[in-house]
């Protein structure tokens, strides 16, 4: 299946990844190439492990006990193994940003939210922080709406605006990969359309991996799609191929709505 992406530059490569909570293996021998400056969608029914896989990329599982990784996730061009026990998860998270299912702004001002990643990194120069924050808010398509109220609480924004703020917050530190975990599942259709457009615009600057429940969304925004089922990678290919000409029976059944 790697042939499909042969012409692309890889940003990351998942190799024989298995992941378990305690004794329960929830990801089984996953292989997945992530192309640079493209959108890769992870689809599959609830409980198939797509969010679990996404959270391996920024070592979120390390926050909880009895979690265990096997295999490799190589990050290019550095060529480091993200899930290596020798690598500090904080270093991984500084390279890879994440946006969660529900908008989760900090109960602080809009500006404090978008600049938080810089604060964490010990950056104090206020002109730099201001420029970066403005740029991130522009990238997230939020600048025009909030430029006059940067010091108002982030929770005064609407749900869709909050989610774009979370995207801006992740973008402010120039991540190498942006992970989106069902970013529109809690939003209304208009906000969803706004964010989908944003995802397509963003891929010129950042590599995106998106988990989605919504097949149409995967079809609309992604370049390549991976279908997962019960912790296994069933099929991976270009989005066009997965949706028009799936090679596996299970993929076809899922795409056509026979289950899931």
């Amino acid at each position: 299946m790697v042939e499909i992406l042969k012409k692309e530059i890889l940003r990351s490569d998942v190799r024989n990844l298995s992941f378990s909570y305690g004794d329960k293996k929830v990801l089984k021998n996953i292989n997945l190439p992530i192309a640079d400056n493209k959108v890769t969608a992870l689809i599959g029914p609830s409980g198939c492990g797509k969010t679990t896989l996404l959270r391996c990329f920024n070592r979120m599982h390390d926050l909880y006990k009895s979690t265990h990784y096997e295999g490799e996730i190589i990050l290019f061009p550095e060529g480091i193994n993200i899930i290596s026990a020798k690598l500090d998860p904080i270093e991984v998270r500084m390279k890879i940003g994440m946006v969660f299912q529900k908008p989760n702004p900090f109960p602080k001002s809009i500006f404090e939210n978008v600049s938080y990643g810089l604060k964490v990194r010990g950056i104090r120069k206020s002109s730099f922080i201001k420029d970066k924050s403005e740029k991130a808010l522009k990238q997230a398509g939020l600048w025009e709406e909030v430029k006059d109220r940067l010091h108002q609480p982030a929770t005064s924004l609407s749900g869709g605006q909050q989610q774009r703020l979370c995207i801006a917050r992740a973008l402010a530190t120039d991540p190498e990969i942006l992970l989106l975990d069902e970013p529109t599942s809690a939003l209304d259709p208009i906000s969803t359309a706004h964010i989908e457009k944003l995802i397509v615009d963003l891929k010129s600057t950042v590599t995106i991996v998106i988990v989605t429940h919504n097949l149409h969304q995967a079809a609309r925004v992604s370049d390549s799609t991976a279908f997962m089922y019960l912790g296994e990678m069933v099929e991976f290919g270009t989005t066009n191929q997965i949706f028009t000409n799936p090679q596996q029976k299970r993929t076809e059944n899922y795409i056509t709505g026979r289950f899931g």
Binding site: N58, M60, L63, I90, E91, R93, M94, G97, M98, F100, K102, N104, P105, F106, P107, Y116, G117, V120, R121, C166, R169, A170, T173
Partner: peptide, 12 residues
């Protein structure tokens, strides 16, 4: 979710 947001940005 708030903790995860902060950890996700690389906070210790």
């Amino acid at each position: 979710t708030i903790r995860e947001a902060a950890f996700g940005l690389g906070a210790s």
